[in-house]
């Protein structure tokens, strides 16, 4: 469910009243031009799920706290604020939960300085190699090598 960030509070209160009382996870995605916050909710009795998502600006993003509805939001909001630099309104979520770093950007933002992606493994095209026979001319399942364990189990 995509909403506007200013509708967030009433939406989540409405969903909580509708029975989505279980908060699965709060997270966010940095789309480079905006942040998107995701709230995964669930109704445990029926198994229905709902994802509340809304965009936030990259600079000084703010979301209201939902800890009065979901106690589970406590640590997720703290994680969100320190990993994405999103300010949680209405509660003190300042203490660092996971780590202490001295960089400027929050670590899970795309702007966070990070070493180059690892390039050690050469990708191979899908169609060429799969099901190609090995040295002994075997294909598929027969390629496995069976392990024998000599020691008795018990």
């Amino acid at each position: 469910m995509k909403i506007k960030s200013d509708q967030f509070r009433e939406t989540i209160e409405r969903l909580h009243d509708e029975g989505y009382t279980y908060l699965v996870k709060i997270t966010a995605v940095d789309w480079k031009d905006r942040l998107e916050a995701l709230y995964f909710l669930r109704d445990l009795s029926t198994g229905k799920e709902e994802t509340v998502r809304f965009d936030l600006p990259l600079k000084a993003p703010k979301v209201p706290t939902i800890i009065h509805l979901y106690m589970a939001a406590d640590w997720y909001e703290r994680e969100l604020s320190e990993m994405f630099g999103i300010e949680i309104l209405g509660r003190d979520a300042k203490r660092l939960l996971l780590e202490k770093w001295d960089g400027k950007d929050p670590p899970l933002r795309k702007a966070f300085e990070w070493s180059k992606p690892y390039q050690g493994m050469e990708p191979v095209k899908f169609a060429e190699k799969y099901n190609e026979p090995d040295k002994k001319g075997k294909k598929g399942a027969s390629r496995q090598n069976v392990i024998k364990i000599d020691k008795p189990f018990m």
């Binding site: 990708p123 191979v124 095209k125 899908f126 190699k129 799969y130 399942a141 390629r143 496995q144």
Partner: peptide, 12 residues
């Protein structure tokens, strides 16, 4: 039947 998956280096 067969249970072997794609080798690690293959990219789908």
């Amino acid at each position: 039947g067969d249970a072997i998956g794609m080798p690690i280096r293959l990219i789908g």
